[in-house]
């Protein structure tokens, strides 16, 4: 295992359109419950893939396997061509710097101001020391999500939507190549949800990221998706564009789209 940790180097991302995340035959159980049975998914560079499915179907488990928070029982998860399960501690850390993860709640560190939240990854991970440069990046990131005025506020002073925007800015400040969104619009009103969805799209265009978006929000899926996959009972059962799936003959697939009509 030691040898694996030191010998394997992360491959450099290659040409446009390449597969950046390749999930093949992944299964994962918790106790007696088979959460993922046979998951296959490919994410290409610059693409936005939306994963739809009922609650408790293992959508979040899938993206947790991508960042190495969970290890699959079967199958492989390859990111930039490297098998995540074979990576050592340092390689996982290196990989995580290239992947942004937006949590459902925004997950802002509540003992720090918004500014300190933004500075945290820059000083701890990128080891930046030039305060002027840090300030510039922080202001730019917050400006991008429309939160420049909230720079010195505590997370407890922010609304749910603002916290998610700040969480997004904190993730994007590291300029990740892949973004994983775990239910980015859950718990928000329709207007704020739409704002967040449009923000995801704008940020994707600005930073040229590839994204996997886990959501129940069909409006978010419609705005952000290049491709949608639908998950049921631990497997992906359908894949296609929003329009293709909307016109599907399958009742289960159509049930997701009926809520928007």
């Amino acid at each position: 295992m030691e040898a694996a940790e030191t010998d394997i180097k992360l491959k450099k991302p290659e040409e446009k359109g390449e597969v950046v995340v390749n999930i093949a035959h992944v299964a994962k159980s918790f106790g007696n419950k088979d959460v993922l049975k046979d998951i296959n998914l490919q994410l290409k560079r610059g693409e936005n893939v939306v994963v739809l499915g009922k609650s408790g179907q293992g959508k979040s488990v899938t993206i947790q396997c991508i960042v190495g928070m969970l290890t699959p029982d079967k199958g492989t998860v390859k990111v930039f061509g490297n098998d995540v399960a074979q990576m050592g501690e340092e390689q996982i850390k290196e990989l995580r710097i290239k992947i942004g993860f937006l949590f459902q709640s925004g997950a802002l560190y509540d003992s720090m101001t918004v500014r300190e939240n933004m500075e945290f990854p820059l000083t701890r991970i990128k080891k930046m020391t030039d305060q002027a440069e840090i300030d510039k990046l922080v202001e730019e990131a917050l400006d991008g999500v429309g939160l420049k005025d909230a720079i010195d506020k505590m997370p407890s002073d922010l609304s749910g939507g603002m916290r998610k925007r700040a969480g997004l800015a904190r993730t994007l400040i590291m300029q990740p190549e892949i973004m994983l969104y775990d239910e980015p619009t859950t718990g928000l009103d329709p207007i704020t949800s739409r704002e967040i969805s449009e923000l995801i799209l704008r940020m994707q265009e600005k930073y040229k990221t590839s994204s996997i978006i886990i959501t129940h929000d069909m409006e978010c899926a419609r705005i952000t998706a290049d491709r949608i996959v639908i998950m049921n009972d631990g497997e992906y059962i359908a894949e296609g564009s929003y329009e293709e799936l909307e016109n599907s003959e399958d009742e289960f697939i159509r049930s997701f789209f009926n809520q928007t009509k």
């Binding site: 949590f103 709640s105 997950a107 802002l108 560190y109 990854p121 969480g167």
Partner: peptide, 12 residues
């Protein structure tokens, strides 16, 4: 509130 997870997945 997933703050520890957020710290971990950010590479910190």
């Amino acid at each position: 509130t997933e703050q520890i997870d957020a710290m971990e997945v950010s590479g910190a």
